[in-house]
Design a protein around this nucleic acid. Structure first.
Lengths: 347, 347
DNA sequence: CTGAAAGCGCTAACAA
DNA sequence: TTGTTAGCGCTTTCAG
């Protein structure tokens, strides 16, 4: 057993107060930026803080304020029985963007998110308990699947929470989302403007509201352009599902000359399949993705895609959550962002 | 201003004690699983806990135990001046695997990591302060660049911390790493066994110890096979840098028939370049990657690669950290994992 | 404008 | 085996 000298106890408010020759209360006021403190004293306190190397103790503060000052970033959804859910989710570029947006907003405010996963009933219970116990003041939720029970559970527990994307069934909870229909319309208009005649689409999983909206929006827009029927192959938002869907479409509609793929990752999978079947992109087939994720620029050719402002949305979500934490009675709000078309080389 | 009725105050130990007809201390003992409590009483307490819906208050507990019961997952390194560091890092499949491994170990133990980023001096200071004020009991550090000052800062502050990968300069801190040289040797042996004669390599950034070790290990093994000189193009572990490096190598060594790429992401970038230049893989050129990340199976053809057991390593790292948190004086340890070769279609 | 004092909910001696 | 008690470090009335 090795032993180092025990670390010196860190200074407390009391120590600072003594060094500054004032009371604990005064030091506390200065530290918390409360006005009504003589500026000479403020200065003295600041010096004492610097001299002692004082850092406020979070636990003590939380105990009295009943706030932890941190928030949870919860990834929820129906993961398989495998224990690998966290790995899969974290490797998803979409999640990375959400987390990045949340962190980007929170960090300047000195708060670090607590990462939690809720893919099983047990994990959800753990998350709920964690929040009730005060691991965080509220939660930013990202669901990977529809029908996620967690939003409702959080709302019922009256825990501050906000959602990335509209829930499948209405739940009294704030959320941000992108206008999926409008995005799909952008893609449709673009493919038609490029003179494509046999246009098909690869959708996301149809139990997800976002997938439904993208498909419906695309079909509506195509109908308005005089294409009442658009063949569709359902994918699962993964690279491999994109490959498979493209294979199916090519088999059923060999003459296709335009594809709208409901996310970039599937489009990344579709591209090699097209090439393998001798179709040049964009020469023979124009491809439009959705998201404008890192996959879009990793593709060859680089993907024309509908930009989903995920980072901005996530930042707004974090802002909303902090607002809810600050005013517990606040009514839920939803904010819808507008997508835009990013034209690259695939169409 | 909307108002809901204020939420009922959550029950405290005192409430449970009253309901069970015992003292706070006894309830505390039961909750913390301390023996020496009459089983009848234990049962009564459990019932009272269930009846009241009691959840222990973390802040109060931390205040006295001087433990938060959570750990920080810190991503460190020299990010650019852009504020997008978190987004970039989180989108990296490698980081996802590390985080997944850490979470996989921690979650069954009821602890959720706090996510922090430390790419600038300011951010590092914030991380240090955060740890000192008790946002977490210790830190798992993942550095994206060598010469990261954070490991040393943490060691000097005597904060429990562990590292993924050996630091560039020695620092008294525990870490896990893979045997990079051995992995590179595996790749060399394999390419030679496949009958390749003009073998080249794409290395990672050479200021990173891991990159140096992979390159050195590869060259040593090739030398042992009678190839004293192996051309190398330096990359930056990114998709695009892999493309560029492959272009350079092809220009300088048009006859190359085998490539060892120091990570899968760069290999994923190299593959389309080879195809574009009319080289079939593995027919004309055999390609071997490193990491066995998700990129390896997303490639076409699927990548033969050196498996880097990142998740297992990360889990071990989390275990090590908890050990250090538990015994503050504990000496640093390092654990080296063995890589293995995963043969797929690219060689 | 500043200080004194109470107490947040819990654990850990120490007594019994 | 159980209960009593003293704080952990901080914020926040309430006096002054």
């Amino acid at each position: 057993m090795t032993q180092d000298p025990p670390p010196p106890p860190s200074p407390t408010l009391e120590d600072v107060a003594r060094a500054a020759g004032v009371s604990r209360a005064t030091v506390s006021r200065v530290i918390n930026g409360i006005r009504n403190v003589d500026s000479a004293i403020q200065e003295a306190v600041r010096q004492a803080v610097a001299a002692t190397g004082y850092v406020p103790n979070r636990a003590a503060r939380s105990l009295v304020t009943r706030r932890t000052g941190s928030i949870a970033l919860v990834v929820s959804g129906a993961g398989g029985e495998s224990g690998s859910f966290p790995v899969e989710v974290l490797a998803d570029p979409f999640f990375g963007r959400v987390a990045g947006g949340v962190v980007g907003y929170l960090r300047p405010r000195g708060i670090h998110p607590v990462l939690m996963f809720a893919e099983t009933a047990e994990a959800r219970a753990q998350v709920l308990a964690s929040l009730r116990q005060g691991d965080a003041d509220g939660a930013v939720l990202v669901s990977t699947h529809a029908e996620d029970p967690l939003p409702r559970l959080l709302a019922e527990a009256r825990l501050p929470a906000v959602l990335f994307a509209r829930p499948a069934e209405p739940v009294p909870i704030s959320y941000v989302d992108v206008d999926h229909r409008a995005g799909a319309r952008l893609a449709a208009d673009h493919l038609v403007a490029r003179g494509r005649k046999q246009i098909v689409t690869i959708s996301g999983p149809l139990d997800v509201p976002a997938s439904q909206a993208r498909l419906a929006g695309f079909r509506d827009a195509m109908a308005a352009h005089g294409h009442p029927f658009v063949p569709c192959a359902e994918g699962g938002f993964t690279y491999h599902s994109g490959e498979r869907a493209m294979e199916r479409l090519l088999a059923d509609h060999p003459g296709l000359d335009g594809v709208f793929v409901a996310n970039d990752l599937m489009a990344q999978g579709a591209l090699p399949v097209l090439r393998h079947h001798g179709r040049a992109v964009p020469g023979d087939v124009a491809v439009v993705g959705f998201d404008d994720s890192s996959a879009a620029t990793a593709c060859r050719p680089a993907l024309t895609t509908v930009r989903h402002p995920v980072e901005d949305m996530a930042a707004e979500l974090a802002r909303l959550l902090l607002e809810h934490v600050g005013q517990p009675g606040r009514r839920p709000t939803s904010i819808i962002f507008e997508p835009s078309l990013v034209i690259r080389d695939s169409s």
